[in-house]
Amino acid sequence: MFWQQVVNGLTLGSTYALIALGYTLIFGVLGIVNMAHGEVFMFGAFVGLLLVTTFQLNIFVAILGAMIVGCLLGVILEQAALRPLRRRSVSHLAPLISTIGVSIFLESLALRIFGPQAQAFPASVAGQLLSIGPLKISSVQILILAVSFGLMLILRFWLQKTRIGKSLRATAENIETANLLGVNTNKIIVMTVALASGLGAVAGVLVGLAFNAVEPTMGVTMGFKGLAVLIMGGLGNVTGAMFGGIILGIAEVFSVAYGSSSYRDAVAFGIIIIILLWRPQGLFGAQKGGH
């Protein structure tokens, strides 16, 4: 049972990590917690589902489609809720509220369009169950694990080595200086939000596949966990998001397996509080602490 629970924890954790990556990217560049990320994630899941069921498309095409819609949503989000706030000096609470507004809007929009019921992917795309010795793991879960690790590595490489990545980091460091240095910061910011939202949408499809349920409120529940991971790992830290997600996943699973399942959510948040007290900047955050 122990190893099966480890597998359960890893798969749950990797979905958390996948969502947290999107939060992290946006926070890293803009210093904003994008509360609407969970809803973009949910929209992506629905788009993927629609493409597979109504349009009978291949699941990989569907993932691509979800990614494109996610990017578009990201651009709209940036234009509507973030850009107007950036032009002025505002308190750091304003973007928080404005993205909460977007999240409420998107959730009720999804409720209108897709209906409140949970929907599932057809069994043919949901992937089979693999048995490795006594362990059972579904192929989608392996895919999720691979995708989130892959994305983490790609993102790290991209941020460190490429030109765009460098301008992105420059923007993250100081928008005004980056502007002076000839970086088109507006473009970079739009790109970051679009990229993060695209990633969120892909995560939505994958999580929808793994747990076989896509519904309008999934954004809130999963988004909440993503937020927790964001804090745990250290704001704006890609590696932190990855490991934070896995730690949270394993902690939750083990609190059920060896403790009492009714305290699961408290255990998860308890860990976050403890980590924050021990390292106020998060597990992988820079030494400075706080923001």
Partner: peptide, 21 residues
């Protein structure tokens, strides 16, 4: 009724855009 939440969300966004303080 059915658009209430949507309007609610939109108002928050508009509010922040025009008067973030």
């Amino acid at each position: 009724a059915e658009y209430r939440e949507m309007i609610y969300g939109a108002i928050l966004v508009v509010m922040m855009a025009f008067r973030p303080q």
